[in-house]
Design a protein around this nucleic acid. Structure first.
Lengths: 358, 358
DNA sequence: CAGCGTTGCACAATCGATTGCGCAATTCAA
DNA sequence: TTGAATTGCGCAATCGATTGTGCAACGCTG
């Protein structure tokens, strides 16, 4: 504690002890042995540091060491539960490894993303985890990152040889479609997210592939929507519901989209799955208690976050292995938003008591 | 572009132009006028900076200026939609003002929170927005922040004279209880979040106050739960449902808690609001499509975020006004999770078509 | 007691940007 | 032609921590 003029710094502590900053630095960074600092001196320094609540200035340290022990995380929308959970996992893993995380929200907008990347560059993050918006412009701005290690997550940029961790979007969508086909659906639409982004396009491709294989229609008129917001999902679903030839099932390629579809169906005084079957993406806490409980494709979000961080730290560590791309498996969680058209009109398995009867 | 040895720095650019770093610095920071740099020189520098893609080293700049243009945000759980939305709003506002945000998740744990605060200190954030865990230990670690401006959000620490922005938790809970009483409920339980945190205790107080005023039971046996997670909500609700004298209504003091209650009710093959009425907190996208659509207390999340940031920037700017505390009004959104006990058994207003009838 | 090795720590340069002060060169007036 | 005023920019210290090198003081041996 002593007399604290200004913020406690390594330097001021040294002065108070009549030592040089060099010695204090070496002790505090655990280099006492290597530089043969006497035990007595070391203890004095440690004691003083503890009692004065010294916190070394990370800015100065980073400047000198040329690394900040921080990483950047750029995602399209932190308020989307998928990315929120991803952020939580990345932050938590990073913390365990002594890194802190600078989060930026690109708002699914290439311009904002470019800004965010510039920010990351000027803040000198040691590495970057990025869910890219994915347009050519964004790709260009990516090069501004220089040689900073970068790992893509959820979405990848085929043009760039960057390591990436994604879940198997294509297989996920195909799985959803297969599930529907099995249950007698033949007219299956899809509510997409942001076209041009990898995750979306892969899912659309999976949807189309599964339908084509079954010789079912998969034309562009069955692909609606644009953007991952609830509103986008609702608007797309509204349009779909007004069509003369209404599809019997919809695959919503995002968790918020599925919510939007549900809202639109409710608005129209229709019901899922009676009037329309629905399969969503990403398991979320609310997915099991919405009306009806949502059948969906689950991605291993925690694993995505952890592996991305691990991969990034490897890169930062210098292991410039060839740009690995890992694709994580997904699975279908069956609940009650899909109607079985084969066996007449029987309702779905977990038929809960309808409200109103005590 | 030229010959780039090492990362482009202000210094290297100066060398390439045969100028001093001082001049370049002054031009780049818009101080050309003040220091009477000739137009020709200025243009040369600007051109070169643009073409070389120079990004000034923010670490060095911060070290020299003693400010980082960054703020810290410490919240208990980024994956909770309430805090995710708050984070998004804070980040967005901060970006508009030229600040970036360092986010840390305290996991509702005083020890982790203390770590996070230490991190913020060593990273030299210019200011801090904090939703404190609220225990005495946390309060103590707060003092480690030194004189750094700090604004509390969502929760406040009565012991500390810090500015704070919170919504009117107490009135919110009271509003919920009043709504239930009006509809004939007399046995109203409450599923709380983390006891000891301001938001929770205020809400419990509001719940209790409204009940006491109506001379209805508000004993501790009607307050269940602990923690803001879904699981906590589910466990609390399970216990409640097994009681001999089951309450007719529950107020869940958090959005995830309401979800947990719903899950527990569904598990028990019961229904809301037939068997149990429910009012939650925080409007969320899924709240209108769960089964049943949730009646709840809405907080002005965006406003909370924006005002907290504005208040913090004022503080950073030096306006050391007395620690203002703003309480933002909340409102009740009526949907369909409350049963009206006065008029027999008639179901609720937005009676949607039960599933299974096409 | 001289000489050599060891122990324990300080000096000073460095990371990159900022800024008060001051110096040279130019212009203008007398 | 000289002195003063102005223009245009560089010098060097500074922020705080890190690290290679160097220099005393000490102990030991012969």
């Amino acid at each position: 504690m002593l007399d604290a003029h200004g913020p406690p710094s390594l330097k001021s502590l040294a002065a108070a002890l009549g030592l040089s900053a060099a010695t204090v630095s070496r002790v505090l960074s655990g280099q006492a042995e290597r530089y043969r600092i006497s035990r007595a001196t070391r203890d004095r320094i440690l004691a003083q540091a503890a009692s004065s609540g010294l916190v070394v200035n990370h800015l100065a340290r980073s400047l000198r060491l040329q690394r900040t022990l921080s990483i950047g995380l750029v995602i399209p929308d932190i308020s989307n539960p998928f990315f929120a959970m991803l952020a939580r996992e990345v932050e938590r893993s990073a913390r365990r490894h002594g890194y802190s995380v600078l989060i930026a929200d690109s708002e699914e907008d290439p311009a904002v993303e470019a800004q965010a990347l510039a920010l990351m560059q000027q803040r000198h993050v040691d590495g970057l985890i990025l869910a890219p918006v994915g347009t050519p412009a964004a790709v260009a701005s990516l090069s501004a990152l220089g040689a900073r290690p970068c790992v893509l997550i959820d979405r990848l940029l085929p043009e760039l040889a960057l390591p990436a961790i994604t879940s198997d979007h294509r297989a996920g969508a195909a799985l959803a479609v297969a599930h529907l086909i099995e249950r007698g659906h033949t007219r299956i639409a899809c509510v997409q997210g942001s076209p041009g982004t990898f995750a979306n396009d892969e899912r659309v491709a999976g949807w189309r592939g599964a339908l084509s294989e079954a010789r079912l229609p998969a034309g562009p008129e069955l692909v609606v929507g644009g953007g991952y917001s609830i509103d986008a999902g609702r608007r797309a679903a509204r349009a779909l519901l007004q069509r003369a030839e209404r599809p019997t099932a919809v695959v919503a390629l995002g968790n918020l989209l599925a919510l939007g579809v549900l809202q639109a169906v409710h608005e129209a005084r229709l019901a899922v799955p009676a009037d329309l079957s629905l399969i969503g993406f990403d398991d979320q806490p609310w997915a099991s208690v919405v009306d009806p409980p949502l059948t969906l494709i689950e991605q291993p979000i925690e694993q995505l976050g952890r592996e991305a961080l691990a991969l990034l730290l490897e890169r930062i560590g210098g292991d410039a292995a060839p740009a690995a791309r890992r694709t994580l498996p997904v699975r279908l969680i069956e609940r009650a938003s899909v109607r079985d058209l084969r066996s007449g009109d029987r309702p779905l398995p977990p038929a809960r008591s309808p409200q109103g009867t005590p």
